[in-house]
């Protein structure tokens, strides 16, 4: 893990509470300015946790998504005064002042809500997250394990896909075509072997889990997580702020 900050040391659940508090606040705040402030507060937390640079690519992606969201919605709202029309001749692509305002609020709300996720992930060890959920929230370990395993399988799948791709290319399957229908058709020779290899692999995984006594008794953890005073303070602050936002 990169340089630890107080954010890294907080209990994973505290950070989840923070994330939920931001989501709640985002739902109750109505104007663009308060939402912008809320988003700024998320960035400030990221900065305080020394992960701003690390989460920047993810934030960029989220901003792009919010932008797209804005573009799709803005043309659908017909109320209010028309500000401008994209194709005046045909009368399509009307943008109204009400639409602009509503969509800005929606996009900012989405941005503020989702921006907590990369910060959460960047400052929390996924294993700790699992332990926290299992220990404090009593999520059955089996489900937590399934989630983590499926995430861990992604790079392996990538590797397998590479091999499948190679094998099918060697049989003259041209995967470089631009034609959409051809591309869709080209997926079958890739997807089927990948699926079957994955099923085989998961069976092997199941067997190796059983041989190591998975689920045979109560589990202990290598790094027990404590809920410290700082966590209590941070959780209380988040809850309080969320409450204030709701009351206002």
């Amino acid at each position: 893990m990169p340089p630890a900050s107080f954010l890294h040391n907080l209990h994973p659940l505290t950070k989840v509470v923070w994330s939920l508090a931001v989501v709640t606040a985002a739902f109750f705040l109505q104007g663009p300015l308060p939402l912008l402030l809320l988003w700024a507060s998320v960035l400030a937390v990221a900065g305080a946790g020394k992960v701003l640079r690390q989460v920047l690519p993810a934030l960029k992606g989220l901003a792009l998504l919010a932008g797209l969201f804005f573009l799709f919605q803005v043309f659908l709202i017909r109320e209010g005064n028309t500000v401008f029309t994209l194709f005046p001749a045909k009368g399509i692509g009307q943008v109204t002042d009400v639409g602009l305002y509503a969509c800005t609020v929606l996009a900012l709300r989405m941005l503020a809500m989702t921006s907590t996720i990369p910060v959460l992930l960047a400052t929390t060890n996924p294993k700790d997250m699992v332990v926290a959920f299992v220990e404090k929230l009593k999520v059955p370990y089996l489900y937590a394990f399934m989630l983590v395993t499926s995430l861990r399988f992604i790079p392996i799948l990538q590797e397998q896909l590479d091999l499948v791709l190679q094998a099918q290319r060697a049989r003259g399957r041209d995967l470089e075509g631009r034609n959409f229908i051809k591309r869709v058709k080209a997926v079958v020779p890739l997807a089927l072997p990948l699926l079957l290899v994955s099923i085989r692999r998961s069976r092997t995984l199941a067997i190796s889990l059983e041989t190591r006594g998975f689920g045979s008794g109560p589990r202990t953890h290598l790094r027990p997580l404590a809920f410290r005073p700082a966590d209590i303070a941070a959780t209380a602050a988040c809850l309080l702020l969320a409450f204030l936002v709701i009351l206002l």
Partner: peptide, 12 residues
């Protein structure tokens, strides 16, 4: 012609 290690990567 290529014969890879794992035939399952191509059979579908």
């Amino acid at each position: 012609g290529f014969l890879f290690q794992n035939p399952d990567h191509q059979i579908f």
